[in-house]
């Protein structure tokens, strides 16, 4: 039977290793057939912003196509797809007040707006909880 893992994250994209680690954990949990709830707090709400664009790399001399620069919103969209394929649930909650203060309301399909109440309710229903704070 599928278990549910809840993770709270805070780091914005492209700043720390925490983001990649959190997404690795989500990927592994979904692959194992578990449900995952992510509560994106503060800068982490920027992870799913729709307007993210890959860029060329002038130092390496690569074009946009050659560089294939990753965007966090694409990684997360792929995690939603993984959940769908495995018939499990990925719930991604962007903290609404954090979204407002950053103007980060335009996000990819999948996440929803929420609050600390949602985090608390998800935590209560979960089999495991991990908080990864920004330093």
């Amino acid at each position: 039977m599928a278990k549910t893992l809840t993770i709270a994250i805070m780091d914005p994209p492209y700043e720390t290793a925490n983001t990649t680690t959190a997404l690795r954990i989500v990927n592994a949990a979904l692959t194992q057939g578990n449900n995952v709830t992510v509560f994106a707090y503060e800068g982490a709400v920027n992870l799913t912003m729709k307007g993210q664009q890959p860029h060329a790399n002038p130092v390496k001399g690569t074009s946009v196509e050659q560089e294939q620069h990753p965007t966090t919103k694409d990684w997360i969209a792929s995690l939603f797809e993984l959940a769908r394929k495995n018939s499990v649930k990925l719930e991604w909650i962007n903290c609404g007040l954090c979204v407002d203060e950053r103007g980060a309301g335009d996000w990819i399909e999948g996440p929803r707006r929420g609050s600390p109440k949602d985090f608390y309710e998800a935590a209560q229903k979960s089999d495991g909880i991990l908080v990864i704070p920004a330093k």
Partner: peptide, 19 residues
């Protein structure tokens, strides 16, 4: 240990995970 092991540990009943 692989990251899958960490997920397994996180989901074990009664675990307190402290980052």
């Amino acid at each position: 240990a692989e990251i899958e092991r960490l997920v397994g540990l996180l989901l074990e009943p009664g675990t307190k995970a402290i980052w």
